[in-house]
């Protein structure tokens, strides 16, 4: 329990409104993405994890710490919230510095850590300005600086890429990956599925307050039996390949690409398909590449939740 983030049968109701229900999760190091439409419970899960709201039922442990103990929890956890408001009158630097001082850091340490976080977020030039004058992207970055400044092992980031320009997004994604590579737990919620795809080690799919699926994206995809796997094959003779494929009963569709150099196969048994493909390749058809066409968050999201509100 001390090496993971655990939700045990957690439910949260806001009066009669459901936040999340019967959530059981065990989150390991790496980047874990919370994916789901608005109101699915992503932010509630994050707030529960950080003690900003309390579960109606169930228990939560973050690397062995209880969210009701902020004095311990936030020494190992940083949370960049979606709340776009700040204590009045603070500059970007003061915001991060004050946060560190609240934690009990002495002024020298707080100063060093604050500047380091500000520099990592490319805010050095604007650190002396009042946050009230910041752009949306700068406010997002200063929140990330606050979450990162004390080098936490757990990073909880609610829509962290919102408002950032493409270059900053790339930098942030690299930063999250680097943190994950260092053994940190990076929990991200996002609507932007292709970015989730690029950075996630595992996804947690949420819908209407329920966890619909969780785990590495390939495992999740494989669990979805009702939707046939789609595989894209690039080869020199797609028509020959298609006719051979259709002899097998688990292949339900084969579609030739317009350039006559590719083929999209839909199969109900991916393992048998790959065995079959090996045999066919030995018979003289030159296979250039084989790649799953729906083994991504987009497809999984679409299969499990639907395509409302998805940004691809």
């Amino acid at each position: 329990m001390n090496d993971r983030i655990v939700f045990e049968d957690v439910s949260k109701f806001y009066g009669e409104i459901l936040g999340v229900n019967r959530v059981n999760l065990s989150i390991l190091p790496g980047v874990s993405s919370l994916v789901g439409p608005n109101g699915s419970g992503k932010t509630t899960l994050m707030n529960l994890m950080t003690g900003l709201v309390r579960p109606t039922r169930g228990r939560i442990h973050v690397l062995g710490h209880h969210p009701d103990e902020p004095e311990k929890l936030f020494r190992i956890l940083g949370y960049s919230t979606q709340f776009d408001s700040f204590p009045k009158g603070l500059t970007g630097f003061q915001f991060v510095y004050s946060y560190l001082r609240l934690g009990g850091s002495d002024s020298q340490t707080a100063d060093q850590l604050a500047w380091r976080a500000i520099e990592r977020m490319n805010l050095t030039d604007d650190a002396g300005r009042n946050i009230a004058g910041y752009s949306k992207g700068m406010r997002q970055r200063v929140r990330l600086a606050q979450a990162l400044c004390h080098n936490p092992r757990v990073l909880v980031l609610d829509e962290p890429l919102n408002g950032l320009d493409p270059l900053a997004r790339t930098e942030m994604i690299a930063l999250f990956r680097a943190a994950a590579a260092d053994g940190c737990y990076v929990i991200i919620s996002s609507h932007i599925l292709h970015e989730v795809d690029a950075i996630s080690d595992q996804v947690i799919l949420l819908s209407n307050g329920y966890v619909v699926a969780e785990g590495p994206i390939h495992s999740v995809r494989n669990e979805i039996r009702e939707h046939p796997a789609q595989i894209l094959i690039r080869c020199d003779r797609p028509r020959d390949l298609a006719s051979k494929m259709m002899e097998s009963e688990h292949i339900i569709e084969a579609r030739i690409h317009n350039d006559e150099r590719g083929l999209l196969i839909k199969t109900q048994d991916a393992d048998r398909f790959y065995l079959m493909l090996n045999r066919i390749a030995l018979n003289g058809i030159e296979i250039e590449s084989v790649a799953p066409a729906d083994d991504d968050v987009n497809s999984v999201y679409e299969y499990l939740i639907g395509n409302d509100e998805v940004v691809r």
């Binding site: 950080t50 902020p70 936030f74 020494r75 949370y79 919230t81 204590p87 009045k88 946060y99």
Partner: peptide
Amino acid sequence: GEILDKSLHFYFLAPIRREV
């Protein structure tokens, strides 16, 4: 006042006992 300004979470996210 901080609840109305939506800035109380700044304090609640710091490693400080709520009583302190």
